[in-house]
Simulated assay, not measured.
Amino acid sequence: MPLFTPERAGPPQAADLIGATDRPVATGGVNVLLVGIDNRGSVPPLADSVLLLLLHIPADRSRPYLVSLPRDLKVPIPGHGTDKLSAAFPFGAGHSPPDLTKGYELTRQTVAKLTGVRIDTGVVLTYSTLRTLTNEVGGVPVCLPERVQSVHTRRVFPATCQRLDGAAAVDLLRQRYGLPDGSQGRDRNARIFAAGLVRSASDQGVLTNPVRLAKLLGAVGPDLAVSPGQATMLDLMRLVPTLRSVDPVGLSLPVGEPTGPSRFVQADPKRAPEFLTALREDQLGDWVARHPEQVNPARCRRPAALRCAATLNGDPDGSRRCPGGQMRLGGAPSRSDGSGDDAGGSPSGEQTDAHAGNEQQATDAGDQAGGGTGDGQ
């Protein structure tokens, strides 16, 4: 499989995204490896900063599945013995400076061996790229199941629905200390964020409008790195119109509790084999129907409330408010230096819509009880 190559020749033009190609649209299930790294220039990314998601698009094109691959999962890494799954990227990337191409390739090999599925293509997203993408789509809605306070900025992310700008999104993705589930909680929040990013892009027509997509990729510029493999990024974009829904279903590889001083987790001996078989056989929909409790219910189901919330630039006319209060906007727009660490709203950043949060929890509980996998995140 060819290694990914950063798209440094410039973003694709709108005409290239319309589909003027002789290549047929991919059929069958498609698997995309998404790797998020906290880029630090010439210093290799820390294993604890690596986020891993597997995007599975089923052959029936019903809707995508976002599968969290726990970073602390104990796995064999080719040429490096046994370690945490997240260690594969820095092992491959090396030092002075790190080679992201090799980091991705070793991660791909490790994930392919772990899951037994073909990785058709992959994307490496640095945190600076995620910050830009978030701002370009006007912020990302997330509904967090538990309160998070940043150990870096002291920003507070309440356990409710909120829209994050780029700086706040990156701040959230970096948090694991203080979470009840530690790194697994961070993995879950990353999955919630990724699903919200897809929704924001979809709501604005970015995924189906070649002009808007070209503009978005142009804003990201050379920081976007993709692996062509058997399916290029443009091939993947051509799949979007064939999906009955772009709203992702959020799942995680079933694992046990952390053990030992290294806090490794092991794949659940009963649930993981069944899950991986369903993934390999393109039967995740059936698996979700049997295990609706495994679908992450923390999902923004109140688009009207989100539209009612103030935009990234503040309440336009100074009067728009959601019922029960204004929905929180996580963080101020990024400053020109890209840091943007000031929280929006109150000094604590905890400006919430309590009424919306309570309704959200009730809706989630009802959907779970009814096996509502259609809207699960």
Rank of each mutant, 00 (worst) to 15 (best):
L312W: 08
S183V: 08
P98Y: 00
Q377L: 15
A87L: 02
P76N: 08
G182K: 01
A304C: 10
G372E: 03
R280K: 15
A195P: 03
P145R: 08
E359R: 13
G205E: 02
A87T: 05
G205Y: 05
S200L: 02
L51K: 06
L34W: 03
L329A: 10
I192V: 10
P76T: 13
V288H: 00
V50R: 04
T27K: 12
P58G: 01
L100T: 12
G349H: 00
A278V: 07
D337W: 09
A15G: 12
G349C: 00
A310M: 05
P316G: 08
V148G: 00
E274V: 15
L236E: 08
R301E: 09
G94N: 09
L284D: 03
R118G: 14
L329Y: 12
G372V: 04
V117Y: 00
L133M: 14
T121G: 12
A278M: 05
A231V: 11
R321E: 10
D341W: 14
G94E: 09
P158D: 11
L207F: 13
L207C: 10
C143L: 06
K74D: 07
T129P: 03
E7L: 15
A362C: 12
L55Y: 03
H95K: 13
V140F: 00
R23P: 07
P2S: 15
A195W: 01
D38G: 09
T107P: 04
G36Y: 01
Y127K: 06
F264P: 01
G344I: 03
D22C: 14
N209A: 09
M327P: 04
Q283P: 07
L251N: 02
H80Y: 11
R238Y: 11
A305I: 12
A88T: 12
P90W: 08
G344D: 07
A26Q: 03
V43D: 10
G376A: 13
D165S: 13
V295L: 14
R176S: 01
L251K: 03
P347G: 05
G371Y: 06
K84I: 06
I18K: 09
P141E: 04
G376D: 06
R320S: 14
L236H: 09
R328H: 08
P97R: 00
T259H: 11
P45F: 02
V124C: 09
S68T: 11
G94D: 09
H95N: 12
P12G: 06
Q361S: 13
G366F: 13
P158L: 06
T277I: 14
P228L: 07
I37C: 04
E274Q: 15
C161T: 08
L130M: 14
S348E: 12
E257S: 11
T208W: 13
R199P: 02
A87W: 01
K74Y: 13
I18S: 08
G314F: 01
A354V: 10
P180K: 10
A354S: 09
H355M: 13
R8A: 15
L144T: 02
R118D: 14
E350Y: 07
L207R: 06
V240P: 03
P12N: 04
Q184E: 08
A305R: 08
G229H: 04
Q184Y: 10
S62M: 08
D203K: 04
A356K: 06
P24R: 04
P64Q: 02
P316M: 07
A332S: 11
G338L: 05
D247H: 15
G221Y: 06
L100C: 12
G19D: 00
T110F: 02
P254A: 07
Y127L: 12
V255G: 01
